[in-house]
């Protein structure tokens, strides 16, 4: 399978990335090279094979629904780009 430039633009939009117009054709070529590598998967017959998500086929472990974490809001927010009164500041969303 290979993709066209329009599809690359669509994928970039989904991934919240922008590709410079001057580079989009190179990015598309590189992308298609990787799809070429990935297409070797089709050589494998995988009918009736169960997908493997965790190498030990482990189930998600759940913990008791108890409060364990301490409130570290101030410490955690120190690394935020912009905050105000304990809130994360972002550009205006609604006028």
């Amino acid at each position: 399978m290979s993709v066209q430039i329009d599809e690359i633009r669509k994928v970039a939009k989904l991934a919240k990335l922008s590709i410079d117009e001057s580079q989009v054709s190179d990015v598309c070529d590189g992308f298609n090279q990787i799809l070429g590598l990935v297409d070797k998967m089709q050589q494998c017959d995988t009918d009736n094979i169960k997908p493997l998500a965790n190498p030990h086929d482990a189930k998600q472990r759940l913990r008791a629904d108890e409060v364990t974490a301490t409130n570290e809001r101030d410490k955690l927010m120190q690394v935020a780009p912009e905050t105000e009164d304990g809130l994360f500041l972002v550009p205006k969303v609604i006028d």
Binding site: V38, Q42, T46, I49, K50, L52
Partner: peptide, 15 residues
């Protein structure tokens, strides 16, 4: 299905 699921099936074959 064509990619992620297929890859996970191959993952089981590798195991």
């Amino acid at each position: 299905d064509a990619y992620y699921r297929k890859a996970q099936k191959i993952r089981r074959l590798i195991k």
